[in-house]
Amino acid sequence: MVERTGAIIKAQGVGIMKVKITVNGEKKVFEIEPSEKLADTLRRYGYTEVKIGCRSGNCGSCTVLLNGKPIRSCLKFTAQAEGAYIETVKALNKDGLHPLQKAFIEAGAVQCGFCTPGMLLTAKALLDAKEKPTKDEVKEALKGNLCRCTGYKQQIDAIMKVVNGR
């Protein structure tokens, strides 16, 4: 059961537990129910840039980086993220727009924007792991991030622009 109290919706009920997680560089202690998923915890604590689409791991909207790798936060139990380093899309623009964000804007890769945080984080993880991924590798990495507006071309073009500029 959850109860909204101001900005944070507090967890209530039997078995409330505390979990220490670093989010976008800030150490946090979250009070959660053992059944709570990471996407729900993050949103409850104000990280509403984490979007929830399908809740079954299919759409990729809820993608966050856990210790640098993309995960489906709608499937991950928050309790299993104890001690983890989480990045949401807001980690990208701490010092102005990230090159990927700029490229997405320039390429017109955003329409409704719901899938964009997941797409950007998956692209960031790929570019962190590979200096010069090929277009096929970009497509492969993004295949689990569904977009119902754009048809994917603009996002792939945007990421390749960043890759080619390296």
Partner: peptide
């Protein structure tokens, strides 16, 4: 097997 975000989990 599915998406990257699934394979990491």
């Amino acid at each position: 097997v599915g998406a990257w975000g699934i394979k990491t989990m």
